[in-house]
Each structure stands twice: as C-alpha cells, then as structure tokens.
Write a protein that binds this DNA or RNA. Structure first.
Lengths: 412, 412
DNA sequence: CATTAATTTGTGGAAATCCACAAAATGATA
DNA sequence: TATCATTTTGTGGATTTCCACAAATTAATG
C-alpha cells in the first residue's frame, strides 16, 4: 500500500467517487453519513457488508436500533467529542460488525461521519491516520450538502410557522407547498410540542434535532423551535393506533433525552390528529392547551400527552371565561368554602379527592390519611352543609368541575 | 310621486293632517306614536291595516304584546339608537305586518315614532328618506304633546322589557325608575318564567295575573307576558333560603293552575338570584336556558327549576358551539357508537344510565331490566371497546358529557 | 376551666359489590 | 343446520361498603 503525503489531494466529482477511493486505499467497505446519520455516499466495490450497512444503504439512513446501540455503547459520544478515529466493537444484536469511524468537522461542529467496516482484518495505526485525513478532505464536500440543507430549512421553517399560525388558508395551497419543498405528506398528523425547563442552548438544540431526525417511531414532517418549545408536525406510521404511537414516541424521546443528555423534566403535549392540513393551527393550539393544563393540574394528568386524553380539562379555558363573567355560581361550593374557612376543615378538598378517586371510600381515606368512617362522616357533612345530594351525579360532577375550575382560576 | 326639497314645508293644523300627508306621499298607512307608544295620530285614507295597527288605534296605544315583541326582536332598540328608518319584519304571532319606522328626535332624546305599514309594496330608498324628513318635520308638533305629558310615568311593562333586554345600563338609572314608578325594591331577586303549552287566552292571562298578585310566597316586583311565557321579576321573602322559596312558589303555582283552571304541563324556570338590577337580563336568559334544557333533557332535570340546579347542563350551549367547530373529539364514544351500530347493542345507553344512577350497579340493572351480572359484563366490554379506564373519573365524566352533548346536538 | 358541639376513630353486623366460573340463550356465518 | 363467538343469566363465596352506635379527641365559647 502506498502512502502519499495527501492521498486525497485530487478533485473528486462526487462523494461516491471519494468513498471508493478510501475503500481502495483501506481495502474495506466505506460509508459516509451526515450528522443525522443520513447516508451521503458509500463505496461500491465491496463483496461483503454486514446487515447494519446493508440496511443503512437500502433505507438511506442508519437504522434507529443501530443508532441507539451506538449511543448506549459509547461510540457516537466518542465521535462527537474527538476528531480521532474510534474503533467500534461488533454488536451482533443489531447486525453490526466491527468497524472504525471518524467524525467530519467544520469548526467546532460535527457535520458527518466516515465508517470503515473491518471485514477480514483490523485496521492498522496507519490506516486510522489515513481515515483521519480522509475526514478532513471530505469536509468541504459534505459542507456543501450541509449548507444547502440549511438554506432549505429556513424556507421550510418559515412555511411551518405560517401553518402553525393559520396563515395559509386553503388546503390546496398547503399541499402545493409541501410538494414544492419535497416534504413528505401523510394521511394523518398532529402537532407535538416538547417544552424544556429552560431555553435551549445551541448545543442541546442540535442534540434534539439529531434525536428527532433519527427516530423511526413516527414520521417527522416538519420541525421547529420556539424558545423552550420544540414543535413537530408528525405523522403516525400506521393509521391504526395513532394515539398510542404518539404516546410511545413521546415517552421514548423523554427517556432518550434523559439517558443521553441528562435532560429531564421535559413536558410534552400533542393536539388532535387530523387529516386536513388546515387543522394544523388547531392541533398546535390544542398541544399548547395540553401543556398549560399539565402545568395547572400536574397530579391529575401528568401521564397524559394527547389533547383527547385531557378529558374535561379540554374545556376549562372556555368555562373559565364564562365563570369570570359571573355565570356558573355554585352555592354549594360557596357554602363549603365558607365552612372550611370558618372551622378550619377540609370539606372541599375531601370532596375533590373523593371524586378524584372514583368515589372509592377506602382509597380516598388512604389518600387523606384518615379513617374511612371519618370520610363517611365528612361526606355526610358535605351533603348537609352544601345542601347537595351525593347520589345525584349531576350535582356531584358540577361541584367537582367547579372546584377544579376555582383551582384553575386561582393559578391563573 | 313628486319630490319637493321639503315636502313637509307647509303648516299643518294637526298631526292627523300631517299623517295623511305622509300617507299620500308614501301610499301606505301611517301611525304616529309618542315615546311611550301612545297613539298621537294616524292616517285615515287607508283601506287595509293589520291587526296590530287596528288594536293600536282602537285602544289608542300599542298593545303590550306587540311592544314586547318589538323589544325582543330588536326593532325598538334600533330605533332608540339610530335616526335612520328601520325596517321591521312582520311578526305574525302578534298580528304585525311588515313596516318601516323612524324615530322622532329632540336633541338626544327620542320623543316619538312614525310607522309606515308596507301593505302591498316594500318602501324604496327614496321613501325611507322621505320618512326621515317627515320625522324631522314632526318634531315640533310632537314636542308640544311631549311637553305636556312629559311628567307622566313611563309605562311599567315597557320598562320591564328594557330591563329584560339589557337596555338600561346603569344601576342608578334603574333604581330611580323603580322609585318613580313606585315599584318596591328588594335586596335579592330573580327572573321566573312560566311557559304554557299554548298561547294564553285573555281569560287565562287574567287568572294568572290574579294568582300572581295574590301570592304571598314571594314578592312580585314586575310581571309581563310574551306569547306563551309569563315572566316575573320576583324577590324571596327572606334572604335565607331563596332557592327553596322560589321552588316552593313555582310548585304551588303549578298546582293551583291545575286545580283551579285545569291547566297542567306548565314548564318553569328561574335564573340566577342577584342583588344588582343590571343582572336582570342575565337572569332572564338563564331562566330561558332552564326551559330549553328541560325540553331537551326532561328525564334528568324535570324537577329542577333554578338555573343553578341545572348543574352541568348550564354550559351545554357553550360546549355545543365548540363541539360543532370540531373540538372535543371523543374516540371512546365513537368506538362505542360504532360497535353499537354494528352489533345492535346498547353500550352507550348502558353507560349513560349507569352514570346517571351514580354508578350504582343494582339500580342501573333495574332501570335497564337486565341482570346485574349482565351490566357487569357490559361495563367490562365498554372498557375494552372504548379503551377507557372505568375507574378514571376524568375519562368517565368526559364520556358522559359527550354522550349527553351528542343527544343535545341531535335534538337541536 | 367547664361545657358543649363538632370531629375522629373504633366495632360489628347487615347489605352490597366484586369476581370467577358455568350454563343457557342469542346471533352471525358458512 | 351446525358451529362458533358473543351475550345473558345464575350461583356461591370473598371482599368491601354501609350503617348505627359508642368512645375518644379536638375546638370553640362564655
């Protein structure tokens, strides 16, 4: 094998040609990916590749389970923190053979990776050095793609915000724009919003973007950020159980953010699942409603992400408006509140928890740390003082909603 | 028809002559009233007038029920706020044909009205302009009368309608009027509405009036009728149990009407109980809401008269609006409805009755004429098919409300 | 501080609910 | 018509709830 000072000096028409060159020099299959593990180029003269590489080439991106393994096992973190080649042991569970990888850098940012599969021999020190040089040489080629994508992204982002704010009126106009920007369409979709505890740094944003681009649980159509919110237009993979798919995706996203980046306390919500694009604004608003309600009623609905699962809290904004106009007086609640204040009792809270627990005496007593008979006594008093019939579901539900509504109002 | 610059330039000996002049120009019957709808003058050359006009001329005042209709329908408010002619669609219930009216102004005060009946043709733009000129020309003549009668009290019924339609803005103004008309005031009050099955005859109206005047269960402040409704402004005798007092009064009123006059099937409702008179309009609307809800949900709330006792049905109008905008999708309900339709089952109804009966298994089973175990089985199926947790009160309440709301929508 | 009312906890038995299982009835389908 | 899945009804026993009563504790008041 000959070693020039710079074996990649020449001009290459395409990255494919470049990949083939590396492959020739190292005598092993080469794959080049962008920062989001999308396939950019691969060498063609190879007679053996492992299942992971095959799948990557077929789907033009690295399979999610492979990415996950590489994260867990530490390869990707290493590549993101060092400019030196990294050897990756084989991971048979995901069909990944032993390989060496190096990251492609532009200033302080990773913009891609080169992978060299060790088919029949381990790469030597010199080979590793060569690979490192290759990464440097690939920089400009990859950068061009990167730049192009960035420019396109900006246009797309603006378009997305138009959708979110309802500034494109007709379905056709939207569909045309989707086509023009080569955004895939989907029969069903919803807006997902992730809300972080703090405003995101450039760094975190990149990591989130990475996670989203590489997920395969849902189909990501569009994506943008707004201060501490990450907003997605996402489609379920199948039309069968969209709610569950979204929920799974959200859960796993939160888990990954925690595991990989130690970012926890992410709140999330998604709006209604629609089939017409003019509903995007509505879905976005509903997603925001979910987040708002989670903030106000963390105990009741922390495990809920979908607008539909909000249940009665869906219409609390509406009710609050009316309530503040002086409608919906509830003298039962007023009497109970008065009594509570005067006698330092907790009748209102007792009823609230009682109803929260599906009117189950034992559970409620446990939750309140009181004897079941005490609860029975209190319920009797609630009926007397509030002059309500605790077997009349209408009265009960109204009182419950009014209690929650009062809480909601107080937190406003 | 000739159009002078001012066709009313000449001097008229009387307003009758003036009315005839307008009638000649517009080729339609003309009536001139003062601000209190007392007849001042009318044209004589007409061969057709509608019942409302006939009655007005005979009694020298516009019949109460006609005034009431005009308030409710918005014609009088429009005339009081604009100097332009207003077209009033015919109101057949009170024998009022289509007409155009214009108000007569002195500075910022309305001192009278001119009515032009559209007997066989609609008035043109030019005719309307002419009418407006006539109103200006009539000012001085009417003013003379107005001055003479200025001190005379406004008629009570019209005042009541102003209150009911929210056309008196300030509390003080209302209080002054109460004093001026020697209507007693009360610290608390509400609007009660009785709705009869048919429009009331003069005879029945007299009997009702008698019953109301002589009751001592509540204090009757004001009283009017509107087609088949009797509308009261009533105050409780004591501030202690106003709700109960109203309920008792309503029950006993219904009983008496039945016993003495064999009139049954009276629906009744009363609005919120307030202490400021500016809430009269609100209380009236709430009373009407009670009646509307009783009509739609007779089984649930037939024994309820007060708005507060409506419970969750208070906000059904609000929710329906949102529902029709495509919010509040409930996939659980959709699945259950689908299943019911496909398999001729009654899962939705089962859940509805179950929740109606406070989730009591035995009672529900009895109500549905099924074995308690059958109910248990159905509930299990409801949980499975609707994918809901029957111990999650939020999901249950939401499903219940959505079922009732769907019923409400269907009845609309 | 004594008294009284209101609240909490404890006990036990009647009533109900819940649950598992089985048998019977019904309905759809081929 | 036979077959299979679904639905309804029945039975019995473990568990829970409901209710009445009583004792103990706490709070409020003069």
């Amino acid at each position: 094998m000959m070693h020039y000072d710079d074996p990649f000096r020449g001009n290459f028409d395409s990255l494919e040609e470049f990949a083939d060159r590396i492959s020739d020099l190292l005598q092993c299959p080469i794959t080049i990916e962008d920062a989001n593990h999308r396939l950019i180029a691969y060498s063609a003269h190879d007679d053996y590749t492992d299942p992971a590489r095959t799948a990557t080439i077929i789907s033009r991106r690295v399979p999610e389970k492979v990415i996950n393994s590489l994260w867990k096992q530490g390869a990707i973190p290493a590549l993101l923190s060092s400019r030196d080649p990294v050897r990756v042991a084989s991971i048979s569970e995901v069909g990944l053979g032993s390989r060496v990888a190096v990251s492609i850098w532009k200033n302080d940012e990773v913009i891609g990776f080169i992978w060299a599969l060790e088919t029949d021999r381990a790469l030597s020190k010199e080979d590793m050095e060569l690979l490192k040089k290759a990464a440097k040489a690939a920089k400009n080629k990859v950068l061009q793609l990167h730049m192009r994508k960035n420019k396109k992204e900006e246009r797309v982002q603006e378009f997305f915000w138009k959708l979110l704010t309802g500034h494109i009126a007709t379905e056709e106009e939207i569909k045309e724009s989707f086509k023009a920007m080569q955004i895939p369409t989907a029969p069903l979709f919803s807006i997902i919003v992730f809300r972080f505890a703090n405003e995101m740094t450039r760094e975190i944003e990149k990591q989130i973007s990475y996670l989203l681009q590489t997920t395969q649980q849902i189909q990501l159509l569009l994506y943008t950020t707004d201060q501490s919110d990450v907003i997605l237009l996402a489609a379920p993979k199948t039309a069968n159980q969209p709610l569950q798919e979204f929920n799974c995706f959200i859960e796993s996203f939160a888990t990954k953010m925690k595991e990989r980046f130690h970012i926890s306390s992410i709140q999330s919500g998604f709006g209604g699942i629609y089939e017409t694009y003019t509903c995007i604004e509505k879905s976005y608003k509903q997603a925001l409603t979910v987040l708002k309600m989670k903030e106000k009623f963390p105990a009741q609905i922390h495990s809920v992400h979908g607008y539909e699962q909000l249940g009665i809290y869906q219409f609390f904004d509406l009710l609050l408006q009316k309530k503040q106009q002086g409608e919906f007086a509830n003298s039962a609640l007023r009497k109970l509140q008065l009594y509570d204040e005067k006698h330092h009792t907790d009748l209102v809270e007792t009823f609230e928890i009682f109803f929260d627990r599906d009117c189950n005496v034992n559970e409620t007593a446990k939750a309140l740390n009181i004897h079941p008979n005490t609860l029975a006594y209190r319920l009797k008093r609630i009926a007397e003082i509030g002059e309500i019939d605790l077997h009349d579901i209408n009265q009960k539900v109204k009182l419950y909603i009014d209690i929650k509504l009062a809480k909601y109002e107080a937190l406003h």
